[in-house]
Amino acid sequence: MSLVRALLTAGRSALAERGGVAAIRPFSRALAQPVRITFVDKDGSEVPVDAPVGKSLLEVAHENDIELEGACDGSLACSTCHLILDEVSFKKLKAPEDEELDMLDLAFDLRKTSRLGCQVKVSPELAGMRCQLPAGTNDMQQQ
């Protein structure tokens, strides 16, 4: 497991060096406590994680070895980061833009509270949020 850790840390500091999200996060946010959220896997198993404020749900999922694809690296071009949120948390978020909805329309197992994981940033009011991974990705409703 230590190898994973080491690489993870290396990856993170590489991100910071590049002036990525971590580096430009405002001071106050950098100090914010991580937020406890729970991923619910396809088989129903629950994975509680401490999510750093300001990170996207996709980044948080990857850092915790949750199998969320994220094929386009968060550039709103694939919908493989689809997550189904609990209703209360969903309502706390600003409504998704047309462009996000356009991609969600291609996702499998689309629900009312579906969001793209790369577009939702962790914030303190999301504490306790539950993020369900969709049932599968093989069926496409689109031709």
């Binding site: 497991m1 190898l3 994973v4 080491a6 690489l7 993870l8 290396a10 990856g11 993170r12 590489a14 991100l15 590049r18 990525g20 999200v21 980044e59 990857h62 850092e63 070895d65 994220g70 690296d73 968060g74």
Partner: peptide, 18 residues
């Protein structure tokens, strides 16, 4: 390099272990 680099490293590590 793309912002997903760190997750790629995690995956590579997981595979190396496997």
């Amino acid at each position: 390099m793309a912002p997903g680099a760190s997750s790629m490293l995690v995956r590579a590590a997981r595979r190396a272990l496997a």
